[in-house]
Design a binder for these strands. Structure first.
Lengths: 233, 233
DNA sequence: ATTACTAGGTTGCGAGTAG
DNA sequence: TCTACTCGCAACCTAGTAA
């Protein structure tokens, strides 16, 4: 499963971007016949800086460089290929979704969501951006937030803006259109809904909420502690 | 199909690495409660620099930052998420292999390979690194080198070193263990072989060679212009 | 045409420290 | 404790130009 590494990442070379650029041009295994002015123009820096940086990359054994009065030939060195691949795999862990559906328990929850849903400033945005008027009451779900992040990767993130009243400030929300169904239940209807996550959700917090235009507890005949299944819309 | 973009890439922010780091920590959608010293320690730069860089990222609207005397809360802004995703997709084009086998025509070729195979300096390395003594003669293949790069991604790159004689210099080679079979032929034997590409192959050149420990033309009953199929070993 | 050296200006870095 | 300002020093950048 894709997951977020807990180890600290150190970037020994700040040149990953340049390596990525060169790789786009040469491919991973081949030689690119070019000159420093072309690269300078692409990257928006001076010819002189390109010359210097390429020499630095060569000294760091990240690229193989062959300079002459007719230009430079550049290819990736093994080290450069490996460094770039490492960087790619790090990003792949963040960006590759391999969770197609979420199964999670309904927590009894205090229905904090119900309180928020009662504010027209939120309601208005839900109608406008999600296309339905939410039932005043939410399902609170106990989740592993890292799994949720992974699951949501291919979803469309809809931003619900926060607002202020005289009494207090209400934070922004992120909403994702989803479908919800009950698990282990003869009733396997799928109901359109939205997964809601406050902008301020901490990366190790573990509760998200589901809203819909109807009472999901009734419609899906849900009991407390029952599991539901969520898929992307 | 994954392919190498021909458009110039400009990096508006040199901060992709830092964004990638932060994303590892916070996830794509959540808030990370930390402090500048922790990040400084992770990245090997000073607390002061982290403070400055985070403010820069905030000004560039790449992250959302909330600093106080008890630390900083950091999350990705939409722009930051998009910038990072763009960078990821660029790398994915380079690194994600979606070509499982290569079909290519045998060119009549002048058997340049045969000449090279006759040098013990190469032969010795083939025996040692590939595990077989190459038949003195190669198949020349007409290919799209970008496709070959993609195909070879999951292969193991074996470097064959170049050498010098009194007369001339012989360049290094890259070798990949593969299996070769004839296409459109009752004989569908798969024979162990190696795909060979000179280190100096230009990114738009279009010939690679195949070597094996036997005469592939005979063993696979190949005619000129016939297609063969190559898979990774 | 190229690459790349030199010189001088600019930006970035971090120790000290204020708030 | 934190963040983040000041400022001296180092690293980086590019215009001019040599090779």
């Amino acid at each position: 499963m894709a997951q977020i590494s807990e180890t600290a990442i150190r970037f020994p070379e700040e040149d990953i971007n340049l390596l990525a650029y060169l790789t786009q041009k040469s491919g991973l295994f081949n030689v690119w016949n070019t000159n420093t002015s072309i690269i300078a123009n692409d990257l928006g820096i001076s010819q002189q800086s390109v010359s210097r940086v390429l020499r630095e990359l060569e000294n760091a054994k990240l690229i193989i460089r062959e300079a002459s009065t007719s230009g430079v030939k550049i290819s990736l060195a093994d080290n450069g290929r490996n460094a770039l691949k490492k960087h790619y795999e790090l990003l792949r862990n963040v960006f590759s979704s391999d969770i197609k559906s979420l199964s999670c328990k309904i927590t009894s929850g205090l229905g904090e969501g119900r309180y928020y849903m009662s504010f027209s400033q939120y309601k208005k945005q839900f109608i406008e951006k999600l296309g339905f008027e939410p039932f005043e009451g939410t399902l609170n779900l106990e989740v592993d937030i890292a799994k949720v992040n992974n699951f949501l990767l291919n979803g469309v993130c809809i931003n619900i803006n926060g607002f202020e009243t005289k009494e207090r400030t209400f934070g922004g929300l992120k909403a994702f259109n989803v479908k919800v169904s009950a698990k282990n239940n003869k009733n396997n209807k799928k109901i359109n809904a939205a997964l809601i996550m406050p902008d301020r959700t901490h990366h190790d917090k573990n509760v998200v909420e589901i809203i819909a235009n109807k009472n999901l507890r009734n419609k899906l005949k849900l009991k407390d502690n029952q599991e539901i299944e969520i898929t992307l819309d």
